[in-house]
Simulated assay, not measured.
Amino acid sequence: MPIGDHSLLERHVSALEKAGSQDIFIAVHYCADLFGSIVEALASRYGVHIQLLLELEPRGTFGSALALCQQLIDRGESKQLMVLNGDIASDLDLVDFHRFHMASGTDFSVAVNDYIYRVPYGVVESHDSRMLRVSEKPAIPFPVLAGYYLMQPSIGTLLESVGNGELGIDKVLSLLLERGSHISTYQHHGKWIDAGTIEDLHRANELFSARGVA
Rank of each mutant, 00 (worst) to 15 (best):
V144R: 00
E125G: 03
L159N: 02
S154N: 08
V144I: 15
R133F: 08
Y149K: 05
P138Q: 01
S154A: 14
Q152P: 01
E160M: 06
L132Q: 11
I155N: 03
E125I: 15
V124S: 15
T157Q: 11
P143K: 05
G156L: 07
F142W: 10
V123N: 00
Q152S: 13
S129Y: 08
L145F: 13
M151T: 06
G156N: 01
S135A: 10
V134F: 12
H127Q: 09
V123K: 04
R130F: 05
I155K: 00
I155V: 10
S135T: 14
V144P: 02
I140G: 05
S154R: 10
G156K: 02
F142D: 05
T157R: 09
I140C: 09
V134G: 07
S129K: 10
Y148A: 02
E136Q: 09
D128M: 12
L158I: 06
M151Q: 06
I155E: 05
S126H: 09
M151S: 03
P143R: 06
M131E: 12
A146N: 09
V124I: 14
I140K: 11
V123W: 03
L150F: 13
Y149S: 04
M151Y: 02
L158H: 04
H127N: 06
R130D: 01
V144E: 02
D128R: 11
L159H: 01
Q152M: 05
A146K: 07
H127P: 03
I155Y: 03
V123R: 03
V124N: 13
S154E: 14
A139C: 13
L145P: 02
A139S: 14
S129G: 08
V144W: 00
G156V: 03
R130Y: 05
L150P: 07
P153F: 06
S129E: 10
I140A: 04
V144L: 03
E136L: 14
V134T: 14
T157E: 13
V124D: 14
V134W: 08
